[in-house]
């Protein structure tokens, strides 16, 4: 299962995406919390800063992390709680990749033109 095969890549990507999402979560809660300071506070200036293209491309990568971590998480649940999950973990990982790319493309097709339009 390990030794550089599918299972190990699934594990590494799950860790890396998980760390990235957890750090993004902390940042995201802090920036949205700035609404506490009211309409005259720092919120709008911060958001205008975030609406620059590098951050919006970053957000596309956050979405990529979300879809992979979500679908691979479902794969882990199937491996842990079904009789057949471990046996089919490798084909399931390819299904995870296919679903992730599909869902991400759905988002990217909608979001990339918005970024380009503001560029």
């Amino acid at each position: 299962m390990y030794r550089g095969r599918e299972g190990q890549w699934a594990f590494i990507l799950h860790r890396v995406s998980g760390i990235a999402l957890a750090l993004y979560l902390l940042l995201h809660v802090v920036d949205i919390s700035l609404v506490m300071f009211g309409p005259e506070g720092p919120f709008n200036a911060f958001l205008a800063f975030y609406h620059q293209w590098p951050f919006r491309v970053g957000l596309l990568m956050v979405i990529a992390g979300v879809v992979y971590h979500a679908f691979n998480g479902l794969r882990i649940i199937l491996m842990d709680f079904t009789e057949w999950g471990v046996k089919y973990q490798a084909p399931m990982w390819y299904a995870v990749l296919a679903l992730s790319v599909g869902f991400w493309l759905f988002a990217a097709v909608k979001i990339v033109p918005e970024i380009v339009a503001d560029f």
Partner: peptide
């Protein structure tokens, strides 16, 4: 992110 353009997000 999908139903709206995230760039319209502001205080309001």
């Amino acid at each position: 992110n999908i139903q709206i353009n995230v760039a319209i997000v502001d205080y309001d």
